[in-house]
Nucleic acid binder design. Structure first.
Lengths: 117, 117
DNA sequence: CTATAGTTCTAGTTCATCTATAACAAGTCG
DNA sequence: CGACTTGTTATAGATGAACTAGAACTATAG
């Protein structure tokens, strides 16, 4: 469980935190039942405000990736394991995009168009 | 060529415009050689500032999706056609994600992790 | 040459993000 | 039960990116 962020990368910090957790879940580094660090704790480690971390956690909860409960913290759900099954398909698609010279932004847009939030 | 935007959606307007063009190119609605509306023209239609549209166009140029020339405007390049070849693969992947209950954000993160800008 | 349309510059406004503090509430766990 | 942990909510201020506005400039098309 290592979360790294880059302030001033243009991407909102809370988005980076959430993305980092998602990535760990997909890789299997984070497994169902695992607990994320407490918000205040992580905030201190990243030298970031608690609200920023909490906003990331709430985003993940909205996606069903974690459960948030007072007193216990953020626990990874079963849903998180499912993401890892897609990894191979994702890798194949990315390889295709690379080969044909389709830039990341375009690929991301294609996905978004087909799978709107 | 229909471009719609939603101000106050959190996503920057110039990003929305660029994404809309990318989507049209992938779908085949926009083909190599086609011209985008003049920046001032589109700006007026969308009730948006010219700079905002131009920023979107410049982003697309950086990706190689369009050529920008004074006096002529924005012309879709050959590169744009390549994106459409990926559509089937993208649709398959999205279907897989849907089936397994993986939310859009998670899928997008997976792509980003594998294909960093 | 004239109209077109992108480029560059300056300046002001708005709004999301992030920070800082604090009080509160619902759990966990001994 | 009771202390502790940890998320929830609220308020307020600072910062910077995005957007707007207006104008002058310049390469290219026709």
């Amino acid at each position: 469980m290592l979360i790294r962020i880059d302030p001033g990368s243009g991407v909102a910090i809370f988005d980076q935190i959430a993305a980092s957790v998602r990535a760990d879940a997909s890789r299997g580094t984070l497994r169902p039942g695992d607990r994320l660090p407490a918000a205040r704790e992580l905030a201190e480690a990243l030298e970031v405000n608690v609200h920023t971390v909490l906003r990331a956690y709430q985003q993940l909860r909205d996606e069903g990736l974690i459960d948030l409960r007072r007193g216990r913290g953020a626990v990874v759900t079963d849903a998180a394991a499912r993401g890892s099954e897609l990894l191979d398909a994702v890798r194949a698609l990315v390889a295709d995009a690379r080969r044909t010279g389709v830039p990341p932004q375009t690929l991301l847009t294609l996905i978004r168009e087909e799978y709107p939030a």
